[in-house]
Amino acid sequence: MIPIFFLGFVGPYIFPVKGIRLASYPSDLPPSPEHLLGTDTSGRDLFTVLLYSVRQSLLIGLIAGTVGTVIGVTLGFTAGYKGGIVDDIIRNVTDIFLIIPTWPLLVILSAYLKSLTIPALATLLAAFSWPGTARGMRSQVLSLKERGFIRLARISGESDLEIIFKEILPNMLSYVGVMFGLSMTGAMLSEVGLEIIGLGPAESNTLGLMIYWAIYYNALVKRMWWWIAPPVICLVAIFVGIQLLNAGLDRLYNPRLRK
């Protein structure tokens, strides 16, 4: 898990930028010590491209994930804890968003807005991921609210705010972690999906874009496995990494497992 993050963030800073430019190198070269992943049809060093792509994809995932989770947690929490009208309002809004078919809408929006920038995409993806988190958060809070230790906390003099942050939140950290992981991977996957059908942003390199270009230039037919395999493997590695990270963090959150 850590290696992936490491690669994604540190990588681009270590390796020079120049390899990205088109036609810098002869095209369609298989991997060699000089070009670790070979070059693509436009003459770019694929290893450099990969590094940048990983970084971009991760960025999208992180932005979308963070924004989505923050919104989701806040709303879900408020709805669950306050109950009553506040809960009803939030719940209805959440349901509306949930009903909206995410994928078709994304496709339509991307096709309509000719130039989709990365930040815009990230925000869009966040907008679709928060309802799931909100729902989950709300039910967690509802179940925790009635637990005995909440009563005891009130008896011991803790204020509502303290109860939210000191009592309920720590018990939900692992859940928040999972939701974040899901949001992030969901966002990244959506991005890949959009790219593959040609609707994603093309301004900077992402893993999805890499795959797109690979397909566009018939990499498979030309047996250029070094073009299409790495981005896919990276994606899988990232997803698995996030899950493992969550599992590891779960040990941290749950004292019972710590022993």
Binding site: G148, R151, L152
Partner: peptide
């Protein structure tokens, strides 16, 4: 107050004696 379920009343995230410290502080 003293409540019934002796497990449920403790926040599993913290050590059991924390609730005494909280009471003293509050």
């Amino acid at each position: 107050a003293i409540f019934q379920d002796p497990y449920e009343v403790y926040n599993p995230f913290y050590k059991a004696d924390r609730i005494l410290k909280v009471t003293i502080k509050k």
